[in-house]
Design a protein around this nucleic acid. Sequence first.
DNA 1: GTGAAAGCGCTAACAC
DNA 2: GTGTTAGCGCTTTCAC
Lengths: 341, 341
Amino acid sequence: MAVTIKDVAKLANVAPSTVSRVIANNPRISEKTKRKVRKAMNELGYHPNFIARSLASKSSDVLGIIMPKSGDGSFLNPFFPTVMKGLSQAAHDDRLGLQITTGITEEEIYDEVEKMVHGGRVDGLILLYSKVGDNVLNYLREANFPFVVIGKPYQYESSISHVDNDNFQAGKDVAKYLLDSGHSAIAFIGGNAELVVTIERMKGYEAALMEAGIPVRKDYVIHEDFMLEGGKEAVKRLMNLENSPTALIVADDFMSLGVLNMLDELGIDVPGDISVFSFNNVLLAELSKPPLCSVDINIESLGYQAVKLLLTRIKEPGSPAMRMIVPYELIVRSSVAKIKN
Amino acid sequence: MAVTIKDVAKLANVAPSTVSRVIANNPRISEKTKRKVRKAMNELGYHPNFIARSLASKSSDVLGIIMPKSGDGSFLNPFFPTVMKGLSQAAHDDRLGLQITTGITEEEIYDEVEKMVHGGRVDGLILLYSKVGDNVLNYLREANFPFVVIGKPYQYESSISHVDNDNFQAGKDVAKYLLDSGHSAIAFIGGNAELVVTIERMKGYEAALMEAGIPVRKDYVIHEDFMLEGGKEAVKRLMNLENSPTALIVADDFMSLGVLNMLDELGIDVPGDISVFSFNNVLLAELSKPPLCSVDINIESLGYQAVKLLLTRIKEPGSPAMRMIVPYELIVRSSVAKIKN
DNA sequence: GTGAAAGCGCTAACAC
DNA sequence: GTGTTAGCGCTTTCAC
């Protein structure tokens, strides 16, 4: 059996509770006994048992990360490793563990979340996506369990802590940028139409067109569930239209790769024949051919802040929900051309 | 306070131990009482407390995943989400939780591993990388804690369970393929020279050349620590040589993106001027320009099998270490051209 | 400033 | 087939 607090106590000639206080670095313990106890710990090679600690203290110092369902390609979007980097960093700063969901379907994930909430293994949860009518989110709300969402909740916005970009404004800015570059036939390619982020970016796009007095064409707005394949599919449809667009706003870099690929296949030059402006600015945006114009939404920071928000939510359960808006920036590369009218 | 096993016991008029047995689906409990207990559970909305269970049973049903340090770019390599998919699937099949390391540096990760081993929060660990002289691996070995490595351990190969491809043979096959295509000036670009996978692939490359009677040129073998930037760097150096190569073997798709990027920048056509054969066959290999020849190493399967191996390691601590070799396949796309001699 | 002792919610002998 | 009971290793009152 491993060495326990009792063994340490015995060797140091103190009570187990004292050892416990030394571990917690309780200021009421004298420096002298602290030294004595720490010496005993080292001699015995003592390591605290997290499980026992969790049971007694009713907190695990572990956060749960709710991933998108691993069944489809979304899991492979570079967005996720990138947020994970931010999450990891913040979690490590605060000595927290990170546990991730493993479900392949939404139902599986729902079940996992249910168990996480009641099982005591996590102190709080971070939802890495936000979609309309999400059962997981509703459940968490009703269970009154500490959680934050990365993205904008589809509902109850003011009572759910979340960290997000102003995706509406970003969508608008991108559309304006293209309008200013002389484009007026601008199409929008988004992911699953239930993802709030897609919806927001699209609304921004529409708002910009309207403000410019350009009617929004229904056939210029396409939503596809699967990023890579969806991007290809969308391009096919758009380029078959009578008046095909001269510019594309694509709601995700990963999707843009599919888009660029299909355009290339069709022999359509970017930006010669058509311009592309994308979102997220993952590492790949820079490496594609041509390098993509993309909105840098500061993904790592989204992750980092999410942990921080969650932490205050856990520590002060009564505190009001907080919204944190992370700034974005349009990164201009060579995938957009100006047109003269 | 949440509803506990005692509450359920009281309502169902049985002993707590009986409830516990029903949870474990112990066959010695009659169907009748099982029904009765389950009914009580539903009525009360009972959910087992994993922490308490872990403390009593000395097993957590959680596996720890040791990620590469998140400080450098390696974390962003699409390899990782892809293995994670396999790991997730297997973990979910067996109702296991997955906890990941969050360390930014190697020292941080070492500390985390130490805590994981002694803290009781994980039943076993999966090492997602393998490098020469790895402290983490050595520690795990000496602590005699259940773990498996994805990749080939740099040492003690026969006493450490691992799942791997035959990377030596794969490297050889790729080199042979290029030789058969008429190339003889073949260079090798690998990742960090301490990564076992890079070493193995390189050795295979060298073996193939030697068998073909072609001397291995030292300046044709380059190792770079950072995948993307490294790929670029390597290309610059190779293309500055007097006799620059006509074919490149690149040990990683992510690195290949950097390579293709730089070649493009230098105005060198692939495969017109130079051929590229890559490894891993992540989703992006197909989408690059041109689509990459790549060795499909079945990443998801590596993850899936790692969990399975670890599980038997945990259940049968005395059992001998196992090695599992996952097959690979050369996927030919348009990044390689034949040359006539 | 430190010790004694009661539990956290569960499992697993051991009884019967 | 089911109940009793003693922990698992820690934290946390409550004493003194």
